[in-house]
Write a protein that binds this DNA or RNA. Structure first.
Lengths: 333, 333
DNA sequence: CTCGCGATGGCAAGCGATTGCCAAAAGTTG
DNA sequence: CAACTTTTGGCAATCGCTTGCCATCGCGAG
């Protein structure tokens, strides 16, 4: 790699016989310069293969045309959709997309935000593990958009799981189940709380007994312990915090020779890759995670420039739907 | 979000009673400044909560402490490992990680590189779809590291699939198979070429007939057409370009009532998430993709600063290994 | 024919660091 | 103690672009 001194705005200016400011305006604020000059400058810029330096632009203007997305665990398929959606949207808007894994740690989130603060226009916090207070505090200084998390007054995009959770309960109720176990995710997970609340709520309404176990790590490996715990309760239906956990449970149950769904029904959340081809295939609450990612980027974009003004409460709620597969069935006698 | 005018190096300088340059040196080149002053400056910086502006630093110094990774398809599980490995390594080195999806298009790769050129120290091209010539050309101007792709003279990290491919053939041969079909991936894919070469090579050595079909889109949906095509050939073993395709094939075969592995054996590449719990579980060539990602970042880091000097041929080769599961078995009579 | 005003382009001051060069201070050496 | 060498800190230029402010110009109005 050689550094052939990229052409700058000054090169273009000299070549076009105008001032640098004119070149700058031609690019950022075209109507501020006469059509004829503009054409000329553009032509010269094109000929010289001019590319603006995002750094210089950002340094001067304060706009970086970059967003960062913080994710608790990149490898969790649950986030793939969100990541993709956000990346696509950012890319479409010509915005650079920074991805950062916070390894399920609130402290890491803080550190990373601090670190990136000056390099980005805003942050997308996906399933943030931080407390509401902390998030609100950060929102004072940074432009934030939340995904699958709600905090009073902050823009957020969430896939609605309360309605969906009730659907799950109804589905189970209709199959004759009288009790269910919820396998909870990380206890800092807002989502986990939401889901439990709706499940319990729905269960109550249907006269179903609901128990919460956990927290379990929301990964395949979490399924082992979770499955065993479930068996002890004697419940006929399990709702896992996510598909990963659910699939883990399925595997463990298979190992132990427990028939799903004959003896126990299993439900997950997210409809991740693989949920349709595991055995038995998984009944799960699917949601447009990619749209949540995309929406988050949009919220961020709306929001920038606005510096002191608190954004009017912008929250996007996306509908989820229950995908019924083989892992749920009639409750046993 | 408010903009409380972040504290700058000048604020620290004033407060500490030294020149800005001293502050700068304290941070970048501590031994250049007296221990006493250094301590003092650090204390003041700490007290004021000073955070350097990456933008300003980059603009002046040319080092951005950022790398970008270009991936043909973010949603393809094959890349998850690579992405994770690269992100982790970058993060550990305090380097910002930009992720960009090129949607399987060589032109997109070019555009994105052009776009990000000034904002990053280098690019990681994962399974690039560009031609060797194009890549070499780009390497003149940019700092590149390749993943799962080799181009003369450029640093690269690849999971060795030639040895692995031969293992696959041996495995199949030992099961009595006399013919195999390779389901090829995108034809711009270097990997696809490599794999086919090694397979054919191995097949020849074992007196096995090998046929290549395709290209097929390396996704689940590609499996439908692929499976049908395979059945026509009457081969008893299929090696798919990747697990996604392989799983797609499994599904289609199941639909058509073809018994795997009784009637046909299926092998994939990558050992992606799900390969172990699809049915039948998939025999596949696993490789440390995350290490490839991590290695690529390291190659990039070694390489920066060096501007004109061409890097000594640095290539990392990672071993793969065959994971035998249920999708392969004795060849039928 | 003069005045006022909008359109247009240039000047120059930043944005927040880094770094070459220089001078003063401190340390070495014979 | 003189003559040097090292250390240490400051000055000022620079990276590439944006933008407030000012000067000029052309033109329609009075």
């Amino acid at each position: 790699m050689t550094s052939p001194k990229r052409t700058t705005i000054y090169d273009v200016a000299r070549e076009a016989g105008v001032a640098a400011s004119t070149v700058s305006r031609t690019l950022r604020n075209p109507r501020r310069v006469n059509a004829a000059t503009r054409e000329h400058v553009l032509a010269v810029a094109e000929r010289l293969g001019y590319r603006p330096s995002p750094l210089a632009t950002a340094l001067q203007s304060g706009r970086t045309a970059t967003v960062a997305m913080l994710v608790p665990d990149i490898t969790n398929p649950h986030f793939f959709g969100t990541i993709r959606g956000a990346e696509r949207r950012a890319s479409a808007a010509g915005i650079t997309f920074i991805l950062s894994d916070t390894e399920e740690s609130a402290d890491n989130e803080l550190t990373k935000i601090e670190h990136l603060a000056r390099s980005v226009d805003g942050f997308i916090l996906a399933a943030s593990r931080m407390s509401d207070e902390r998030i609100l505090e950060l929102a004072e200084e940074h432009n934030l958009a939340l995904v699958n998390r709600e905090v009073r007054g902050l823009p957020s995009a969430v896939v609605d799981t309360s309605v969906g959770s009730r659907q799950i309960v109804e589905h189970l109720a209709s199959l004759g189940h009288r009790s269910l176990v919820y396998l909870s995710g990380p206890h800092q997970s807002w989502l986990a709380g939401e889901r439990w609340d709706s499940l319990r709520d729905g269960a109550e309404r249907h006269g179903i007994r609901a128990v919460r176990l956990g927290p379990f790590p929301p990964r395949l490996v979490g399924g082992g312990a979770a499955a065993d715990a479930v068996l002890v309760t004697g419940a006929t239906a399990v709702v896992a915090h996510n598909d990963l956990l659910a699939i883990g449970v399925l595997r463990r149950l298979a190992e132990r020779g427990v028939d799903v769904p004959r003896r126990i029904s299993v439900v997950g959340y997210d409809d991740i890759f693989g949920a349709d081809f595991c055995v038995p295939s998984l009944t799960t609450l699917a949601g447009p995670q990619d749209q949540a990612g995309r929406a988050a980027v949009e919220l961020l974009l709306e929001n920038r420039s606005r510096s002191t003004a608190r954004t009017p409460d912008r929250r996007v709620m996306l509908p989820s739907h229950l995908v019924i597969r083989e892992s749920t069935g009639q409750a046993p006698e």
